[in-house]
């Protein structure tokens, strides 16, 4: 008797897997870094005066929740994302650090001048070494890092209204305990 039901069972099982497969975005890869310590790094800050560039130490962010956004002047979707970052920086008291990934510093400065600079600090990662440690595979990417220096949330691709409201902002709110 159970043999009669076997084809039906197989169909339902296969259908279930295919249905799950359809509803997933293949370009979003679950990051193994979630809830892991954010890779520590020291790198040059992109400053207006290249000669006076300082170093940024990721350990200096320990003790507060911060947002780490990977962007580049050559990245098209970053332009679409930018207004959301500007609005976030305006409305929230959470440090926003930019990682200028595999970019020419001059291009990056020109880009920030044209589109506005929402970042509290921008790190220049010309060779992409910091990006490599954070498992960056597409720009833009956004990380939320907690006071203990752990990556708690990661968004791949440009932030938009939906991903801000349903993923990113709730994650920031949960960590900061603020209801803003």
């Amino acid at each position: 008797m159970w043999l009669r039901l076997l084809p039906l069972l197989v169909c339902v099982l296969l259908g279930g897997f295919l249905y799950i497969g359809l509803s997933r975005d293949p370009s979003v890869i679950p990051s193994p870094l979630i809830d892991q310590p954010a890779p520590a790094f020291t790198a040059a800050v992109l400053s207006d005066e290249p000669a006076a560039s300082k170093a940024f130490d990721s350990d200096s962010m320990l003790g507060e929740v911060w947002v780490f956004n990977v962007w580049a002047s050559w990245c098209g979707p970053c332009i679409a994302e930018h207004p959301f970052l500007v609005a976030f920086a305006r409305d929230h008291d959470v440090p926003l650090v930019g990682l200028n990934y595999k970019d020419a510093p001059d291009d990056a400065r020109a880009w920030l001048q044209r589109h506005g600079n929402p970042f509290d600090a921008v790190i220049s990662d010309v060779a992409g070494d910091v990006g490599l440690d954070y498992g960056v595979y597409g720009v833009p990417e956004t990380f939320v890092i907690d006071a203990d220096g752990r990556i708690r949330y990661k968004h791949v691709g440009p932030l938009d209204e939906l991903s801000m409201q349903e993923g990113f902002l709730p994650a920031v709110r949960e960590l900061t305990g603020a209801d803003s």
């Binding site: 990051s31 193994p32 870094l33 490599l132 498992g135």
Partner: peptide, 8 residues
């Protein structure tokens, strides 16, 4: 590689 990008 796996620590950064996962099993994928």
């Amino acid at each position: 590689l796996v620590a950064r990008y996962g099993d994928f």
